[in-house]
Amino acid sequence: MTPPVLELDAVSAAYGPYRALFGVSVTVLEGATVALLGSNGAGKSTVARVASGLVPVTAGRVLAGGVDVTGKPAWRIARAGIAHVPEGRGVFSTLSVEENLVLSLRRRAGPRALRHSLEQAYLRFPALAERRHARAGTLSGGQQRLLSLAKVLVVPRKLLIADELSLGLAPHVVDDVYRALGDVQRAGTALLIVEQSIDRVLSIATSAVVLDHGSVAYAGPATEAADVVAHVLAPRGRPQGADGAMPAEPRVPRGRGWRRSQTT
């Protein structure tokens, strides 16, 4: 049996004195699609960043294809076939649209196939073709988002980590993106998706991981995740919230900056 594409083994992580993850384990099998769910500040982005080597782990191990990559720089993990589309802006705003694509596709597609991959990218996202020589910084927020997705959707990778996949995209563009995801899925790419639109992501996911306060609250088949999510997220209502009911336990601050570790 082939080892999982990505395995986080009891990983903890922190931003300076602010701890964000507490012993989180996530496994992405080859060709699988894992949805990463949880409320705002539960640590979803941090899991994505740990997996791609952007944030160092303070405990636990990260394995990519069975190889221990704990503490390895991000570029080594990227070369091992793991692509990460970060949340927010993921493009170089001072470079042109085409330069952004070249930077990304050249290494993965190889110099010879570069022209072909560029054409494919423009074909799939015609909005980018019109602005190919414009500086990426002059694109609208949504178009920049599209560009950062175009960079990774054209050439299939072993694993694609997408953080806040459809953030800031118009509905029909979201459809396009999900169609493209379907294509790379069929090409054998495993997916780890952070997404706010839960129903949508669960419709393509094979399994789901629900995070709560930096720990795993649920890991298992996607079909049952929806209930868990509703359970984990719903009691978070504030006095003005729609649901009204308050949990009996004391509320813990949200945001990733809420627990100061004892050591510093």
Partner: peptide, 10 residues
């Protein structure tokens, strides 16, 4: 960092 995500040793 963004460059490293492209697999380049920044």
């Amino acid at each position: 960092r963004l460059l490293e995500l492209e697999g380049v040793n920044a």
